[in-house]
Each structure stands twice: as C-alpha cells, then as structure tokens.
Design a protein around this nucleic acid. Structure first.
Length: 753
DNA sequence: GTGTTTACTTAGTATCGGCACT
DNA sequence: AGTGCCGATACTAAGTAAACAC
C-alpha cells in the first residue's frame, strides 16, 4: 500500500485510495501488478516486435488482400476510357499473378498512361523510409503581387483620408474586406490586426497621418470598393469569365503536376498561401495577426538530385534546395503566426497519399485482432493501485468508447482546446452512480457535449482524478500524456496509436450499421440509409458544422410545402364527399382528417396561394413585355395586366366561398376514382418531402463529409455499392472517387473491415 | 522524462460552380 | 436567361505523432 517509488506529484493523491469499498481486491491486483511492474499495461505476449522488416507478405489481410485482382472497372469514369486501357488492365492482372509468387522488377512504367498507374496492384511496397525514387517538379506558384488601390479609395482616419504606403494599404485592405464578417467584429481580431497594421506603418513609414486609435479608422470606403469589384466580376459576360478561367489554367498548368518516379502525379496545394490576416478558429489569441507574404527566399524545394532546379521567379532565389526522399513534400516554408511549417504536397489522388491512406486503414483494421485483449487489460487496470496505470486505463477507455482524441498539450498562444489527456477538472461533471457529463472544446474549438453513463470503475476513477486538492484548471490526467499512451499501445500492435482507435471504431461502427440495412427499396432510399449509417459515425466522432444561415428558412419552406400538400389532400377529400356524401359513413377513417385542418391554417394557405398567383402573373407580365420590347412590338398595357389578374380574383372568391361553406366547388370532369388517385400521389409526395425534411434536420449540424473522407474505410462503401446496386457516384463525389480509386477497384462484395 | 522540430492527417468553412427553379 | 440554393471543392488551420535534443 505504499510504493512511493510511484511518480511523485505535487499532491499525495498518487496512491489510489478506493474511496469506497466494494472495490475489493486492491491488494490482489496490487500483487499482480507488482509482478509485471512497468509492463503492467502491456500484453503478456509481446507478439509485436517479431514481425517487422521481414518483407515476405505474412500479414494476410494486408498485402495479400490488396492485390486482389482488379474488378473490371465499373464506374462510368472508367468505362468511358478507351479500350487500350482495358487491355492494359488485363495485362496487369496477369503480371499480378506472377508477382504474387515473387516480385519481379516492374518494367518501368510506360509513360503516357500515368493516369492508369495502379499502385495497389504493385507489390513493391514503398514500405518504410524511402518515399520516392525520383521527383521532378516546376516549383511553386506565388500569389500575385499587390496592386495598389485607385487613388480615390482610401482609409479614413478621424474623418480624413489617409495616404498609406502600399504595404500598409495592403494590410488595411485585408481588414477592410472583413469588416462585415464575424472576424472583423471580433475585438481580439481587431486588436491583433491593428497592432500589426501599426507595425507595418512604422516599418514603411507608411502613413501621412499619425494613426493611433483603431476606433477612428474608417474602412468603409475600401470595403465598398471591394464589393464593387466583386460585383463587376460577377457581371462579366460568360465569355469573359471563360477567357479568364482559361488564362488562369494556363498559368497554373506547370505547377499542378510533377513527375514522381517518372509518372505524372497531381500536386495538391501548389499555390503558396497568400498574405492576409490569420483567421484562427475559436478564441485564438493570435487571430487577426498579419500573415506575411512568402517570398521564394522563404521556400525550400525538395526534388531529385542531379536534375535542373526550376528557376525561381525573376529577381529572386530559392531559400534552399533539398533532395530528401524520405519525405513526401515538394516545397516548404515557415509561416510567421505560430512559426510552424507549411508544405506543398501531393494531391489526394496521388499514389503516395493513396498508399498511406491504405496503410492507415489496414492498421486500423488490424486492431480488431487486438481490441479484445486491450479492452480486457484496461478493464482490469482500471483498478490498478498505481495511479499512472489507472489513468492510462481510464484514458484508453475514453478514447476507445467515446472516440476522444489523444489531447496533446497546448500553449498559451493557442486556443484553449482539449482532448483526452488534456481534459481538466471543469470539463467533466460527475453524477452518481455513474453519469458523466463531458463539456469541453475540442479540435477547432468544436464543443464536445455528452451526457453518458460510464463503467462503474471509470466513474470512480474520474472521481479520484478530481479529488481535492484538485480544482478547476487542473489536469484530470496528470500522470500521463499522449506519448506515454502511444508507447503502451505499441506493445499491442505495431503502429497502434491513440488516433487509430478513432479510425477503427468509426469503420467498425459503419460496418455494423451497414450490416443492418436490408437490401430493399429504391436507390434513393438506400442512399438515405447509407447516409444514416454515415451519420452514426459522424456523431461518434463529433463531426459538426455550423448550421447554415439559410437553414431555418429552408426548413420553414419545406414545412410550408408539407402543409400545403396536406391542404390539397383534404380539399380533394372534401370534393369526394361532395360527389358521394355517403362515403363518409362507409370509410370513416379515410375522411377523419378533414376535421383536423383548422380554418386559420386554411386561410393562411389560401392567402399564400393567392399571393403566389398574383406574383406569378406580375412576373410573367413583366417578362412578356420585356420580350415585346426587344421585338419592338407594342407593349402590354395596365389593362392587360388587370385582366390577367382577374384570375387571381376569381381564385380569391372561390377560396372565400370554400372557407364559408366548407365545401369545395365541383369540377365537372372529376370522378371519385380520379380523385383518389390524385390523393395517393399527394400522399406519396408528402412522405418523400417529410423524409427529406427529417434528413435535413438530422444533418443540419452534423458533418458527414469528414468521416467519409478520413475515417470510414472506403472499401465498406464500395462493398455497399456493389451489394446493394447503388452506383458509387451516389456515395462518393468525383474527388472522393479519385481519392479512393484503390478501394473501388480492389474490394469485392465479400470484403469485410 | 521533457521540450522542440518536423512531417503528416484531420477539420470546418469560404467560395465556387452547376442545377433546379422561375 | 436569370437567380437562388446547395453540394463540391479549395483552402488552410489545428490536430497527432515520431524523431531528435537535452
């Protein structure tokens, strides 16, 4: 009960005192734990280390699986490619088989079919250190130089126009463009901007008036000018826009691709980030600071040795040239806000990114072979009498069960956000017997709020981690950090880190959800169900989005539409009763709902319809006149308009009558049969619409994209598409299809995560 | 261990562009 | 043909994690 060799921490709460009883066999555990000492948290058999560099494809679900022969590419994407491509496909299949036995050197890729290169069919795993054999590119694209504003557009200070140096003017412009946004209105943003603005003024001797107070700065003229520019741009003719686009493409062309191992591959962010004001997320202390312009001198290029270095922009030099083939970036520079690095990298559909993505999912997939043991272990260790082990076990539980991120430490100059290891006292609320409320800001300052029930022992532990003298501001997990956690994880499985749990649990959840879906209904219905499964995962990972400004509106609109459908239906039913009053008795139920619709509601709808009708007539009138004018024919007169509007008046009368009598005017051609038919159509539309509504509301603050892109093994989606006959285009956008081509072409419908 | 440096993934949002509506 | 909306894409911030320095 006293091994004080345990890490000392400021307080003496290191020993876990079971705050209460039933906790029993601490002593017992103690013994066990003792024997294993520091291995206490690792599996008995360190199976890991063994498998390693041994090249032979031993891991069956890894390499072996991925080589699965290419399915005859189904997506239209591929089908519209020339036949030559197909031939190559089948060729590759053959090659494959041979290779399976033992790799044979790949005959250097035939150039022009770069696009068709299928790394996932190759054996020569670019495993490990070396990321490329050869790398050629044309450098990076810089943002255009700053163009001073026309002389009549100025910043005003204390009511007077200010003459600014072009550097200072640029910075003022950055802010001016944002004055109507949340950033522009954020005091921290304003303050940081203003400080940097003053600095630039000082450095460039940039103002003819002494600028002291932010409040006296008037950016509205600049803002208005930018708005005007936007407007003008929008109003350009189609051809002009096209022209500009073409021009832009031409300039970008050389920077969009590179040669990787002799094959053409796309580059992702080939553009150097332009200067601007740093837009930090959440309460970021540095938000609004000036992000300075990057010059070639700041940029390091990375490419093969012995090839020509792309020429730097006129009058400049590259900062440095590297030939490091253990990294995947093509260019790099240092940014001035957090003094961190920025990289130019390959695009998502590149072989390098694809391979790494594939590996990520394979690692996550392997976790299924270890998860039981891991869970057993941490369940036991929740009761360890070593504080550190308890914390390890508890953290692992949270990461596994609630998909928390690792939670590395953060500085004062960053937004105050947390993950598992950095959770603090105030982030959880405990309510016996085992309820926990998590409430904290996670990555991107997205709120994580969950009321959950946890394992009894976890509850106890959290209580202990909060015990006095701990108080708000103190770390819950004061004996551990992500690095420690990850080191432990390595014992179970090579490559296992905290984030792998998120990937694993996300994909596992998706598979389980998909397994529940029955193969029935229309394609649209299946897609909706797929999205529902997707949503489960997104919720697990806490992927949120801010509800769009127009969301409330569009919900309202759909609701109105629903109401109107309902009204139409009831109206038709009334009509039926007009024709066959005795039906009311015979099919009571069918006509019951007629009573449900209140007069008030009816009136509202009547008004809306009339309004809409008038509106339509007016618009049509205007359009017709427009046309006549063009054709130089006599215009329609107000009298014509009045005539047309009579229709609306008639409608008005009709509705009024209806409202009064509760009866609907009969149409001559109607028959009960026809009406019933119409009612059914309306009912169907009602159903679909309300389905859409629900989907929309469910999705309003959940972001499905992030999990689809990063967490759900794409092969699950491919399997679903194949098994359920849903075109993959309905599930993956074009870019996702490109990113996940490896999955689309390698997973057959029996594939399991 | 702790702290720093580097490199890579994950994340929400601003903006673009195409399509369904008038 | 114009417009408004919405999904897709571009952008870059914000994480994780490994390697290295002390």
């Amino acid at each position: 009960m006293d091994s004080d060799d345990d890490i000392p921490i400021k307080q003496r709460n290191k020993r876990v005192i079971s705050d209460d009883e039933d906790d029993v066999p601490l002593s017992q555990i103690t013994k066990k734990v003792k024997t294993e000492e520091d291995e206490s948290f690792s599996p008995q058999k360190p199976k890991t280390k063994t498998k390693k560099a041994s090249k032979p494809k031993k891991e069956k679900d890894g390499t072996a699986e991925k080589v699965k022969k290419p399915k005859k590419a189904k997506s239209d994407e591929n089908s519209n490619k020339s036949t030559t491509k197909k031939d190559k496909n089948s060729e590759k299949v053959k090659k494959e088989v041979k290779k399976e036995a033992k790799k044979e050197d790949s005959p250097t890729p035939t150039q022009e079919d770069d696009e068709g290169y299928k790394w996932w069919e190759q054996q020569d795993d670019l495993d490990g250190e070396i990321k490329w054999e050869s790398l050629e590119h044309n450098g990076v694209m810089f943002p255009p130089e700053y163009e001073p504003l026309p002389s009549h557009v100025k910043l005003y200070y204390d009511g007077k126009p200010v003459k600014l140096s072009k550097e200072a003017e640029e910075v003022a412009g950055f802010f001016a463009a944002l004055i109507e946004t949340d950033h522009g209105k954020n005091p921290v943003f304003q303050k940081n901007f203003f400080n940097d603005f003053l600095k630039v003024i000082e450095e460039t001797n940039g103002s003819d008036i002494r600028i002291v107070e932010f409040e006296k700065c008037d950016f509205t003229k600049m803002y208005a000018y930018f708005e005007k520019l936007k407007e003008e741009k929008k109003n350009l003719s189609k051809d002009e826009k096209k022209e500009m686009k073409l021009e832009k493409e031409k300039i970008e062309e050389p920077y969009k691709t590179c040669l990787l191992n002799g094959r053409k591959e796309k580059i992702g962010n080939f553009r150097i980030e332009p200067p601007g004001l740093f837009r930090g997320r959440g309460a970021h202390p540095k938000t609004g600071k000036l992000k300075r312009r990057v010059y070639p001198e700041d940029v390091t290029l990375n490419l093969s040795e012995g090839i020509p270095v792309p020429p730097p922009p006129e009058g400049h030099n590259w900062g440095d040239i590297k030939h490091d083939n253990t990294v995947t970036w093509l260019a790099m520079w240092r940014e001035n806000i957090a003094d961190s690095f920025k990289y130019v990298r390959f695009a998502n559909n590149s072989s390098i990114k694809g391979l790494s993505d594939f590996k990520k999912f394979e690692t996550a997939r392997q976790l299924k072979n270890h998860i039981d043991e891991i869970r057993e272990d941490y369940t036991k260790l929740l009761k360890s009498d070593l504080m550190q082990d308890r914390q390890m076990a508890t953290a692992t539980y949270l990461i596994d069960v609630f998909a928390l991120r690792a939670g590395g430490e953060k500085g004062d100059d960053e937004a105050d956000t947390v993950g598992c290891c950095s959770l603090r006292y105030e982030h959880i609320t405990l309510t016996p017997p085992n309820k926990v409320i998590f409430d904290f800001l996670g990555k991107d300052s997205i709120r994580f709020y969950q009321e959950v029930e946890v394992d009894k022992q976890v509850f106890k532990n959290l209580k202990i981690f909060k015990k006095a003298p701990k108080q708000p501001g103190d770390d819950l997990f004061d004996r551990i950090n992500p690095s420690l956690l990850n080191k432990k994880f390595q014992f179970y499985m090579k490559g296992l880190t905290a984030k792998v749990f998120r990937t694993y649990n996300a994909s596992k959840t998706m598979q389980d959800q998909l397994d529940l879906i029955k193969n029935e209904g229309t394609v649209a219905e299946k897609v909706v169900r797929f999205n529902a499964a997707n949503r489960t995962v997104a919720i697990l990972c806490n992927h949120q989005r801010t509800v769009s400004k127009t969301h409330g509106n569009s919900i309202q609109k759909i609701n109105d539409k629903l109401k109107e459908l309902l009204w139409q239906k009831i109206r038709l039913k009334k009509l039926i009763l007009e024709m066959e009053p005795k039906l009311k008795k015979i099919d009571k139920k069918y006509f019951e709902e007629i009573e449900d619709f209140s007069k008030e509601d009816e009136m509202v709808i009547h008004e809306k319809i009339i309004e809409r009708t008038i509106d339509q007539i007016n618009k049509k009138f205007a359009r017709d006149n427009e046309k006549l004018k063009l054709e130089q024919k006599p215009l329609l007169t107000n009298k014509d308009l009045k005539e047309r509007l009579e229709k609306a008046d008639e409608l008005k009368k009709e509705f009024k009558q209806e409202l009064k009598t509760g009866k609907v005017q009969m149409k001559k051609t109607a028959t009960v049969e026809k009406l019933k038919q119409q009612i059914e159509t309306i009912e169907n539309r009602y159903l679909t619409t309300s389905f859409q509504l629900k989907d929309k509301e469910d999705n309003s603050e959940v972001s499905l994209g992030t999990s689809k892109m990063n967490y759900i093994d794409p092969r699950l989606t491919v399997v679903f598409a194949k098994k359920f006959d849903v075109p993959i285009e309905k599930l993956f956008t074009k870019t996702l299809r490109e990113k996940f081509t490896w999955a689309i072409e390698s997973a057959d419908e029996n594939w399991r995560f």
